[in-house]
Write a protein that binds this DNA or RNA. Structure first.
Lengths: 186, 186
DNA sequence: TAAAAATATGAGTCGCGACTCATCTTGTCA
DNA sequence: TGACAAGATGAGTCGCGACTCATATTTTTA
């Protein structure tokens, strides 16, 4: 992987700027924002954006990949040195909040129909989250019959709701509390 | 309200056809589907669509209004002659399933930024749902501290998740069960 | 039933946004 | 430092989809 020739210095810098700008722009205006705006925000000509990401989809995919990497990293950190009894719930809340970033992007991608990535990153995320879940179940803070797919569905749902519905911080907190309550043992 | 002159017979028929076609098309392909496709499906020229709904947004709004009307109607029916102990949960499930229709439409509308309707229909829905909630709380099947806004947030969340994530029927059922579990008294 | 009014038609306009390419600029390396 | 290749530039192309309007058709009404 990544045996690609090393980029020239300015190219590397521009690529990073574009990614950062794109994340901002798409988070603000949704994935329908124009590539031109990304270029402007990055302080770069539009041709440069297309040199690095031949397609708008490629650009979106790159952002998603980066976001997922961060999510997985965080999960890894929690697995390594979080308190098993609470790490799961911490991560749950973290994921829901992150959805505010991922949400709009996923939205359009889903609408456009095609799949983005050959799932190994998704698998990595699922594995990490699964580890947190099991640890919490062993620690007795999550009901033992809760399955990973259900829990992930809950995260996705709550995240989407938080994004689409523009919930207040307070409402989001209470809703997450209610949802995670469903996962606690009786 | 609606003091509008009576439409000509063919106009009334076409308007209905367009609405039906639009609901189908937007449900299938999301709100990004073209107006031309709606016209084709309705068996009508594109100009006719724009005569009835001067803007694509108007068309979407009309569909939303119709959907909401149905939701409210159903709630009213349940308030009138459902079992208070279970009607709330029935309606919860009904709403989540309906989201499969509403979801994509809401999505784009939210993304486009503007509000759709001066909320009285929303209020009517909230009131009806609130009545079901209170009845269930009196009947002791919903925890007394659950607030209406939280419950609506849960519905929205689960609905969105179900749409965006393309959950299987089974997964959706289990997830709804998990969520509604959070609402049962301990 | 014939004029008048309402409605339907669909080719055409317009703007926008993804993507290209001929040309210019800059980093790299001997 | 010079020359060459990698990269940057941005005006221009292309397609698509929302919306218009002159003309044709249908319903209504007197």
């Amino acid at each position: 992987m990544t045996p690609d020739k090393p980029l020239r210095a300015d190219a590397r810098r521009n690529r990073a700027r574009i990614l950062a700008a794109a994340e901002e722009v798409f988070t603000e205006h949704g994935a329908a924002a124009s590539t031109e705006e990304v270029a402007a925000r990055a302080g770069v000509a539009i041709g440069t954006v297309f040199r690095h990401f031949p397609t708008k989809r490629d650009l979106l995919a790159a952002i998603m990949k980066e976001l997922r990497r961060r999510l997985i990293e965080r999960a890894g950190a929690l697995v390594a040195d979080g308190d098993p009894a609470t790490a799961f719930y911490d991560y749950f809340g973290f994921l829901v909040e992150s959805s505010a970033n991922i949400g709009p992007v996923i939205g359009l991608l889903a609408e456009e129909g095609t799949e983005i990535e050959p799932g190994d990153q998704i698998m990595a995320l699922a594995n990490a989250f699964g580890a947190l879940l099991e640890a919490a179940q062993r620690a007795g803070t999550v009901r033992p019959d809760a399955r990973l797919d259900e829990v992930m569905a809950l995260v996705a749902a709550t995240g989407h709701g938080a994004v689409a519905g523009a919930w207040s911080d307070d409402l989001r907190r209470r809703t997450v509390a209610l949802v995670t309550d469903a996962l606690r043992p009786r």
